[in-house]
Nucleic acid binder design. Structure first.
Length: 491
RNA sequence: GGCCCCUUCGUCUAUCGGUUAGGACAAAAGAUUCUCAAUCUUUAAAGAGGGGUUCGACUCCCCUAGGGGCUACCA
């Protein structure tokens, strides 16, 4: 039988690390067994769902580069893939459960129920289960049906068995037993607005869409028995279920905004590469081959094994992700990196979005100089600005090598200028040779000779390699900057 | 409070009863070097605690502790 898995987000927020991780694991699992990966939009929360988040979802996955085989935007045989478009379905299935005596109409005002919850939470509880008191469970069906027909506002609740146990055979966790008395007492299946809750919709749709494996985050574990009870109420065979370990922030809590960047578009804007993100996230809570840790999406799809996933939650480590990012940046060719970095340079106003020949030459030529200095693509404008405009000079002290003074720095600059004038700046070893010769003649150290020049040319004590930079800029620009710096120091 | 899950270096992990407990990130030191990076070498760093089972436990079982999640007409 063909394996079918789904990613079923609700468009109530931006795509973030946690949800993308679930999606990725589903995708990799599907790939590893030649199955299908399906997207289903769970937009049954009418107040929180928004089209904006749907677009964010599409954008995110287009950027990441792994996509579903069936989904709202590309269609498929099991559609529609948007739950609001399947609206009528859920009512009829909920009614079916009522007819079977597995669910019931509930007329309790929402305020009564929520008051019950808040009371239960404020009392320093003496134990037992909180939640709905099942007041409507035993209303005569005929009476209840009549009230519904009369138009009375109501919800439909699932009858959780009062005793017995429900056993989940989790693909990762193994057998997990729940006493039915501990399960959320009679959860709502159909809301008073006629929309299903997650519980109903996910069970109905997973069944109708032929989902064979449900991989979801471990935060869903407590509702697994409820879903199992529903499957058996319908008389359906439940899918295989696997609860994935959660991703936590540095403080050990569920990853959220306060941990820093968590939304995928933030990572993209910051200049993370999709390869790095995918590679890192895939390795969070799982292991593949020992010995190396750089894997492409394709390799991960081949190597993925459910059994290799860890049960314990994993802490999201931004530093390790940064390392992956550096690795992938360094793998890029000059041309590839050029394309990646260009949007950042143009956003910073350094180059035109479609740069002229001279700017292309500069940017492309700078790629070998900056490649291993970029942690993020967004570092590019800061590192490369001096290539496009004369640097502002911050402070005179910047020019001064250790143990020297401003007058010495100025003298060094004068010397540098004279050496530069006899250099062929395209000949880097040759130029360096000439400067080394000047070292012995002047008595300054090689580094001391270059520091003021570096600051004059690049505007900072930390920069890409000096001689390469000078070659890119050309002798005229370089000498002009040296003169400007001398004037600055003298002034 | 109740229920459930989890527990190897700071972090991500390897180990499927017998290993000097391995690797990666981060950290520290060194090499290299025109700065900063990158790179290379080296170092430090772990089986939560207590009981069992066993000839032998990180590995299996139990208890304790700790961490996490859930406990909605949100998903």
């Amino acid at each position: 039988m063909e394996v079918r898995v789904r990613y079923a987000p609700s468009p109530t927020g931006l795509q973030h690390i946690g949800s993308v991780r679930t999606a990725l694991f589903n995708y990799l699992f599907a790939k590893s067994v030649g199955g299908k990966f399906i997207l289903r939009l769970e937009d049954t929360d009418r107040t929180r769902s928004s089209e904006r988040y749907v677009q964010n979802l599409y954008n995110t996955f287009r950027w990441l580069g792994f996509y579903w085989d069936e989904g709202p935007d590309i269609g498929g045989a099991a559609g529609p893939y948007v739950q609001s478009e399947r609206f009528e379905l859920y009512r009829s299935y909920a009614d079916e459960l009522v007819a079977k005596g597995k669910a019931y109409y509930c007329f309790c005002p929402e305020e009564r129920v929520s008051k019950m919850h808040s009371d239960a939470n404020s009392e320093e509880g003496e134990g037992g289960n909180y939640g709905y008191d099942r007041a409507c469970r035993d209303i005569d069906v005929a009476v209840a049906t009549a009230r519904v027909k009369a138009g009375e506002s109501h919800v439909i609740r699932l009858k959780i068995p009062l005793d017995g146990t429900t056993t989940l055979n989790d693909l990762l966790l193994g057998e997990v037993q729940f006493r039915n008395a501990d399960v959320n007492p009679d959860p709502v299946l159909l809301k008073s607005d006629g929309y299903p809750t997650y519980h109903l919709a996910n069970v109905v749709d997973d069944h109708l869409m032929g989902i064979t494996h449900v991989l979801r985050a471990q935060e869903w574990l407590p509702s697994a028995p409820l879903h199992l009870i529903m499957y058996s109420a319908f008389g359906w065979i439940p899918p295989n279920i696997c609860h994935l370990p959660m991703v936590l922030g540095e403080d050990g809590h569920k990853l959220s905004k306060r941990h820093g960047a968590t939304a995928l578009n933030e990572f993209r804007d910051k200049g993370y590469l999709r390869e790095a993100l995918i590679n890192y996230v895939a390795m969070l809570g799982a292991s593949y081959e020992e010995g190396h840790d750089l894997f492409s999406l394709e390799e991960l799809g081949k190597l993925f094994r459910l059994e290799k996933i860890n049960k314990a939650p994993a802490i999201f480590d931004y530093q390790k992700l940064e390392w992956f990012n550096g690795q992938y940046i360094r793998q890029k060719s000059d041309e590839e990196l050029f394309e990646l970095v260009l949007p950042y340079l143009s956003d910073a106003g350094l180059v035109d979005p479609s740069p002229d020949k001279e700017h292309r030459r500069l940017v492309l030529g700078a790629m070998p100089l900056v490649r291993e200095r970029l942690k993020f693509l967004s570092d590019a404008p800061g590192i490369m600005a001096y290539l496009f405009k004369d640097p502002p000079f911050a402070a005179k002290e910047e020019f001064v090598p250790k143990k020297l003074d401003i007058a010495k720095a100025e003298a060094i600059l004068a010397l540098d200028a004279s050496v530069l004038k006899v250099c062929d700046v395209d000949d880097i070893p040759g130029s360096e040779e000439k400067f080394r010769a000047a070292v012995s003649a002047s008595g300054f150290k090689f580094g001391d000779l270059l520091m003021p020049l570096r600051v004059a040319v690049t505007g900072a004590k930390v920069s890409p390699p000096l001689f390469e930079s000078i070659r890119l800029l050309g002798l005229d620009t370089t000498l002009a900057r040296v003169e400007a710096a001398r004037a600055f120091l003298a002034g």
